[in-house]
Design a protein around this nucleic acid. Structure first.
Lengths: 229, 229
DNA sequence: TCAATTCGCTAGAGGGTCTAACGTCACGAA
DNA sequence: TTCGTGACGTTAGACCCTCTAGCGAATTGA
């Protein structure tokens, strides 16, 4: 009795497996040639099946792209959360914030195409997949809000926090209605980080010989000092 | 004798006219459906010619896209320069900077697809059109450096400036080698502006109910105060 | 007037998304 | 065990796209 209660039936397991395979192949194409290089046809050929077979698993190309975006959100969130959890618990809120910022940039530089995928305006039919996508973005925001909250009150690390300084998804909304200023600050911080990373990826900075490492480090410092006013 | 010395021969004039028509049609498609919606075939059909005729005027689709990017850079630059030149000469450097920042955001919001075009990483063959593109970017940077220079020394408006507070293209390089800190500040400011605008266009901000106007205004104020430290 | 160049055309290769219609096979219930 | 149901993968094909090759016609400059 290997599967006494196959809650996920054999079919569903296989289906999920194929979806994962397709996404993996799509990620390869993404890394190789950008979002435009992702081709359902080519993925099918690479998987040994032919053409329209994959439309059993993804409604269309946009559906596949959306799945990649959600995965990327989760991956970025996990990377940042891991970075927060990994360091020594004796780190000051400053150090935790710096670690978060650098982990953010590091993820973006390591997977530029996926980062681009995250923040590229989904212009044509942008109302389609807005729901689960907004949730993923909120999850990221929650992380930032947690660290900023620590930064704000200058205690030593949490220990009284519900979850070691990370908001849960729903808390973002409550935090927004409660302390709008905190929320504004978080958005501002995120905007600044994203601005540098985005320009860096776009090549706008590399065109002028600039030490982006130093620039980023300096801006992080400015952001930290700004929270202490 | 309408054209006694046709320095631009009849052919070249016509050729340039067609190129402009093609770019205009491409801009319509860009505004309607994003960069991905730009199709040489559709443009040709819209212009009444058929298919490959346009390849006499643009080497390929990327060539057309590059032309659009350069035009967009120039348009944005002109819009900002006009904004700087338009206001009353009695404006303080603060006001000039605020005007510049708001004009930047206004242009991006008015033509989101063109703005996206400017800063989207050209990943596949990005070394191709790097030369004229970098020049256009530098031109933008020069504008920002000029206003920041005014902000730095808190005099009343220029009158001793070479060109009313705008650097010329070459001056960017000299300014970089001379005052690296000014250059870093300019990049940081630009990054922050671009970060907010980019997130706003991407929908990351609109997902959470935020008063982006107020946020932007506040961030501009923070940037101004930062230059006075 | 006469070459040279440029233009626009059609034909076509090669790629893509996506739909339609058709066997085939596994599953689950009678 | 048998049988209907539904999911699967297939091919065929419509319809888009980019881009090349080769053709005849028109314009240009000498």
């Amino acid at each position: 009795m290997p599967t006494p209660a196959p809650r996920s039936s054999m079919r569903e397991r296989f289906r999920e497996q194929v979806r994962e395979d397709v996404k993996a192949a799509a990620l390869d194409q993404l890394a190789a040639g950008g979002a435009q290089a992702i081709s359902i046809n080519a993925i099918a050929k690479h998987l040994g099946v032919s053409g329209p077979a994959l439309y059993r698993y993804f409604a269309n190309r946009d559906d596949l792209l959306t799945a990649l975006v959600i995965d990327a959100y989760e991956d970025l969130h996990d990377a940042l959360a891991h970075e927060l959890r990994a360091g020594a618990p004796s780190r000051t809120p400053h150090e935790r914030f710096r670690a978060l910022a650098h982990a953010y940039r590091a993820w973006a530089l390591a997977e530029p195409h996926r980062y681009e995928l995250l923040f590229k305006p989904p212009l044509p039919g942008y109302d389609a997949h807005a729901e689960p996508l907004a949730a993923a973005a909120r999850s990221l925001m929650a992380l930032l809000l947690g660290v900023l909250a620590e930064l704000d009150r200058e205690d030593t690390p949490p220990a009284t926090e519900p979850r070691s300084g990370t908001y849960q998804n729903e808390d973002v909304l409550t935090a927004r209605t409660a302390g709008a200023s905190e929320f504004h600050l978080a958005v501002a911080v995120w905007s600044c980080l994203h601005g540098i990373v985005s320009l860096e990826l776009g090549g706008g900075l590399s065109a002028m010989t600039i030490d982006v490492d130093a620039l980023f480090e300096h801006e992080v410092q400015v952001l930290i000092e700004r929270t202490l006013v």
